[in-house]
Amino acid sequence: MRSTKNRRAVVVGIVLVLGLLIFAVGILTLGGQKHSFSSSFTLQAIFKDVNGLQKGNNIWYSGVKVGTIRSVGFSPAAEVVVTMSVDETVQRFIHRDALAKVGTDGLIGNRIIVLFGGSPTAPLVADGDTLMVESASGLDGMMDTLKQNNRNLLAITTSFRKLSDDLVMGKGTVGKLLTQDDLANTLQDALTALQHAAKSAESLTAHLDRFSQRLSTPGSFSNDLVSDTLVFHKLRESATDVKAAAANIQAATEKLNDPNSPLGLLLRDSAAAANLRSTLHNLNSGTDKFDEDMEAMQHNFLLRGFFKKKKQQGATLPASK
């Protein structure tokens, strides 16, 4: 019985301790988040409108949560005095010319105070300092912007309405185009012609494409012509040679045309040409007669043995082969 009582007491104690432990962890976690257990200093800011800022809302500096709102109250001048409890560890980063503004944690989140700016040359803030504020746009500002946008939208739609009316009435180039059939037909013809031209251009492009493909086919003459630098070099040398040959021909032609040169004289002087023709005729006649003489010599008894012997030698040479 006694041991049962002790066991119960121990179990109840364990349950109590565990429960209180969970509670303590929750409190410490919350305290850590709210900087309740860390030393802090106080800053103030005076706003005209805090847009629903409440005690306990967060304070951000450069996007980091550095404290909470301690109180929100009114000054004698009917302005809103916001007292902020800021973590002491960030005191060395906030300068006296830093600004405070009312912001929002997300699009529809809680109101927060945003500390920003501050020049490094300015002294650091001290406990109880009052920061300058920047008036936040807030919901009213957003509504004003929205109102302005609506006005702009109205003006744009009015312009569009006038434009559409003009189009319907056939005013302007586009209106005429919409209302006059002949103009539309002309435009359609022009478009058709343009379409044909586009097709031709497309065909031309295809041809050019094929030509360029051939040009780029390795081994083809055109490709060699384009890409083979050796052939081009040789062609250039050949052209140089042709040019030199042409110069020589020109010099020779000039000499031929020169009446003082023998060939020029021959080409230009008709008497000399006739003499030359007569000389050639005589030479031809002389050759025939010499041929007859040679024939006669073969039949002469003095030289007949020599020619017979030569003939026999000529007959034996093919048989030995």
């Binding site: 349950v15 109590l16 429960g19 209180l20 969970i22 962890v25």
Partner: peptide, 13 residues
């Protein structure tokens, strides 16, 4: 009275 708050802590955890 004692144990319901303790059980509540367990519930929350």
């Amino acid at each position: 009275t004692i144990m319901i708050p303790v059980l509540m802590c367990f519930f929350a955890g």
